[in-house]
């Protein structure tokens, strides 16, 4: 179980998080820090970076499951080890305070505290991020966006911040800004298949609201993003789902005798030529087949196929069922 504590528990299912945080008292008890003023390796128990990573993840799990007592212990231990002034510890302390805050007045107070810290030391990234997260969670989307843009101006290589900004923009319905931010994330982590798929989803969404003129090009872009994400990660459910959705939409748009439209996209601009109709059809078929396979095998609980999230499987099945219904009609 310790091994799963080593990984950040952001996407743990609730049951696992609960299980982890239930171990907290035991782990914390074992976790005695040496009382020697200086560390002498062969006299004190060795501490590894993992020790502290585990403690940090334990803190997050405890906060998720509402075990504030263990969380406080985690924070205290981390503070004891790294000192009050450590940026990261300050961020975790802020996170803890936010979690146990009972009313808006508490949060306001925290906000003022963050502002004071940042005024003194504007390079404190964890606190800057906490401040933005707090702004967002208290509903001040615009302020959060402004703060995040300022943050990214001073630190434009932070993938996490770019992803957060993309999410913020998306929640406000600003598609082109979202796409820009997601592309920035991809520049930093070029092989993140989930971001490729996410970008495909956002492009698809923007295609839904765009006028008739640009929709084909957007759909083609979206298809390409999904293709890339599947290329990077075999059997990626979100990728196939998106691929099926986008190719289906494109096929419904195109007349059957559609020629690879050189009219839509100007080859002189250097854009790659759109795929031919046959390709789109083939992609749609493959996506459908793959989705069906994933749903079937996952529902049967086959070994190696049980890692999918239940909600995603249900959504995929719904999509497939809709297709079947249409055919029957």
């Amino acid at each position: 179980m310790t091994s799963s504590l080593l990984h950040p528990p952001a996407h743990l299912p609730p049951s696992v998080a609960l299980h982890l945080s239930q171990q907290a008292p035991l782990l914390l008890q074992n976790h005695s820090t040496s009382k020697l003023p200086i560390s002498i390796p062969f006299l004190s128990t060795s501490e590894t970076p993992e020790t502290w990573a585990i403690l940090e993840n334990l803190l997050l799990s405890c906060l998720r499951t509402g075990d504030d007592k263990s969380a406080r212990l985690c924070v205290e231990k981390l503070t004891e080890r790294f000192g009050e002034e450590n940026d990261r510890v300050m961020g975790l302390q802020g996170l803890f305070e936010e979690a146990v805050a009972e009313n808006d007045a508490d949060l306001e107070e925290l906000m003022a505290e963050y502002d004071a810290i940042l005024k003194e030391n504007p390079t404190n990234m964890p606190i800057a991020k906490r401040r933005i997260a707090l702004l967002r969670s208290t509903g001040k989307l615009e302020e959060a966006t402004v703060a995040l843009v300022a943050f990214l101006d001073s630190s434009p290589t932070d993938a996490e911040a770019w992803a957060e900004l993309a999410d913020l923009y998306l929640s406000q319905g600003l598609f082109s800004q979202t796409i820009y931010c997601l592309e920035e994330v991809l520049l930093i982590v070029p092989n993140a298949w989930n971001i490729h798929a996410r970008l495909g989803e956002v492009i698809y969404m923007s295609a839904q609201v765009s006028g008739e003129s640009g929709i084909e090009k957007l759909l083609v872009d979206s298809i390409r993003r999904f293709c890339r994400s599947i290329e990077l990660c075999d059997d990626y459910l979100r990728g196939f789902y998106g691929l099926k959705l986008t190719t289906g939409r494109l096929l419904s748009l195109l007349p059957q005798n559609f020629k690879p439209a050189s009219t839509v996209i100007n080859p002189a601009a250097g854009e790659p030529a759109p795929p031919t109709l046959a390709y789109v059809q083939r992609l749609n078929e493959i996506a459908t087949a793959k989705l069906a396979e994933i749903v079937r095998r996952s529902n049967a609980g086959e070994k190696g196929w049980d890692g999918y999230e239940q909600a995603e499987i249900i959504a995929a099945r719904a999509l497939l069922d809709k297709d079947v219904a249409k055919v029957e009609k």
Binding site: P122, S154, S155, T157, E183, L186, L187, I188, P190, A269
Partner: peptide
């Protein structure tokens, strides 16, 4: 401690370098 301006300078340059290295993930227009 690096000050915020210095950090901005370094990371902005780094951004250019990542853009150059990972340019293929972008479409031509982007």
């Amino acid at each position: 401690k690096e000050d915020i301006k210095g950090r901005r300078e370094t990371r902005s340059l780094l951004r250019g370098i990542t853009l150059r290295n990972n340019a293929p993930v972008l479409s031509r227009s982007s």
